[in-house]
């Protein structure tokens, strides 16, 4: 579905290149918001649809959107703190302007782009996705972003590219756990198989709730892979490498029996120490039962084909 609307937005409101670069896109993004908030499907960007691939339903969520203040105050961002409350304040010291992203490896045209220039080539849209943490809590977030695929294409991947490695910012002056070299190996690294990276559900997000991404939520640009546990959706990305072999990812390296490379949401495969069968949506009221976790976080219709031949309890 392509939304065409002639809603006039005063130029004074169009201020933020990270979110909205052309008036046309603003209209689309803003329009998508109220629709999505009402729980109805919203639009897709022009030119990136392949009709009949079931894409429209990726906007569909059966839950209401989580209030923004909860999403901004409950963060796993171990570079700053092991608590969920502290990143909201500590992350404010992260420097994100200017921001450069590098795309290298098995590509025909390696790129080094300033984020503002990169965004000029992309159509930013709103995508309302469920987000499921491996710790068994979840939320529903209206991201603003664009498909990772449309960025990767600009670098012209070679056929030898089988995996994609993402690297987070290394900024020990701002990140206490990087400065002390504690907990995990820094900088944070994540990875996807090439078909996962090119899947239209996979986003690079630069905003949420109609605003720029807050720093504790991964500003200025983060990955969003809605059918995988949240730790796959790496924050503050500076480098994207296309590789022949699977990269060793941070949590997988730290605890290989607990966190696999795939990390697809799967209620049937418990974490070694706790169940993944149910989840606690943020903002639920007392005495509300947990939500039953769905295979691939409810995106099975779109992604199950990627794993058709795989034993999901082995490749967890």
């Amino acid at each position: 579905m392509i939304i065409k609307t002639q809603k006039v937005i005063p130029a004074s409101e169009i201020t933020d290149p990270h979110l909205f670069l052309q008036r046309r896109k603003v209209v689309k993004a803003l329009l998508a918001a109220p629709l999505a908030y009402a729980g109805i499907h919203s639009g897709l960007a022009a030119g990136q649809t392949t009709p009949g691939n079931g894409l429209a339903s990726h906007y569909q969520t059966d839950s209401t959107i989580t209030p923004a203040n909860l999403v901004k105050n409950y963060n796993n961002y171990y570079e700053f703190s092991l608590t969920k409350e502290q990143p909201a304040s500590l992350a404010q010291s992260l420097r994100i302007d200017p921001w450069t992203i590098e795309i290298t490896g098995e590509v025909e045209k390696p790129l080094r782009l300033d984020l503002d220039d990169l965004l000029k080539l992309q159509t930013v849209q709103e995508y309302v996705y469920r987000f499921r943490c491996v710790e068994a809590w979840s939320m529903v977030v209206p991201w603003l972003g664009f498909p990772l695929a449309s960025l990767l294409k600009t670098a012209k991947p070679l056929s030898s590219a089988q995996f994609v490695k993402f690297t987070s910012i290394h900024q020990p002056e701002a990140m206490p756990l990087q400065a002390n070299n504690t907990m995990l190996e820094w900088p944070y690294v994540e990875g996807l198989r090439i078909d996962e990276a090119f899947h239209p559900l996979t986003l690079l997000a630069t905003g949420m709730y109609g605003e720029r991404l807050s720093k504790q939520n991964g500003a200025p640009i983060r990955l969003v892979v809605p059918w995988k546990y949240g730790f796959k959706s790496i924050k503050a990305v500076v480098k994207i490498e296309l590789l022949k072999k699977a990269p060793l990812t941070t949590w997988n390296k730290f605890a290989p029996h607990d966190y696999g490379f795939y990390a697809n949401v799967n209620p049937a495969v418990p974490h070694p120490r706790w169940s993944q069968a149910s989840e606690r949506p943020l903002g639920s009221h007392f005495f509300t039962p947990r939500r039953k976790t769905e295979l691939f976080n409810g995106y099975g219709e779109q992604v199950a084909a990627l794993y058709r031949t795989m034993d999901l309890s082995h490749f967890f």
């Binding site: 070694p272 706790w274 069968a277 149910s278 039962p289």
Partner: peptide, 21 residues
């Protein structure tokens, strides 16, 4: 049992069974 699970015993049973802690 009550606040978190709303006394939904089937979900509680699975959760306890799969959570060794």
């Amino acid at each position: 049992l009550w606040l978190d699970h709303g006394l939904q015993w089937p979900i509680i049973a699975i959760d306890i069974w799969q959570s060794s802690y």
